[in-house]
Amino acid sequence: MENNNMNLTLKVWRQKNADTKGAFVTYKAEGISPDMSFLEMLDVVNEGLIHKGEEPIHFDHDCREGICGMCSLYINGRPHGPKGAITTCQLHMRSFHDGEIIVIEPWRAAAFPVIKDLAVDRSSFDRIQQAGGFVSVNTGVTIDANSIPIPKVIADEAFNSATCIGCGACVAACKNASAMLFVSAKVTQLAMLPQGQPERWSRVQAMVAQMDAEGFGNCTNTGACEAECPKEIKMTNISKMNNDYFSAKLFREEGVHEHASSGE
């Protein structure tokens, strides 16, 4: 194989923890193979840092196959880097050219405070899901799975919304740091399915209220979220959620109910 390795300059945001100020630090990444993934390139840089006794650059990552949603990184002004429909762990160095300067920043949002370097705290997403992103059924359902047919187009559409990996790229991309795409994907998935109907109107209210409480910005329908979503979740989810929200707030009886504990 011919040697077409690359040398790159990285400008990386380093920040010791949430309480200290951060700054950009420049690193050289040398001898990088175009077949490496972006995170593997960072691994190489980190191995070099460890050898020098320095602290490696911290970033979140886990599955490295684009599904767990843990990796993030705002690369050259775009979440998950320059290519569409993939996560950072799926980004390969062949998408860059030799000598390129790469600016790497953490997701920036008040609701995603920096933990260290490039890793941010996305627990606000979990709290939104906890507020209502579920169907209240206990284990032990005895309704046969095929007792309620669901039209294929509806099932497929619900699936499209359900593919959200909760990475936060939508928030990172949005100029308002709005979480509407994330929230609406779950709301819409469940609103489309028959199983989601009983709590449809309370769910949307609960999840939006939590979203607002977390300090995300407002949606201005710019479409940046849709353009940057690694799972290509559509903005129509947002509109569908809006529709449900206004229906719920203005025309429905259901409020945000306190879910009764079932066990006792």
Binding site: P149, D156, G196
Partner: peptide
């Protein structure tokens, strides 16, 4: 068999045929 029932009830969007069944 119970697992599939449980997951469908939770809103897991399994693949379906045109007739609406799994």
């Amino acid at each position: 068999v119970n697992i599939i029932d449980q997951c469908v009830a939770q809103g897991v969007p399994f693949a379906r045929e045109y007739g609406g069944l799994l």
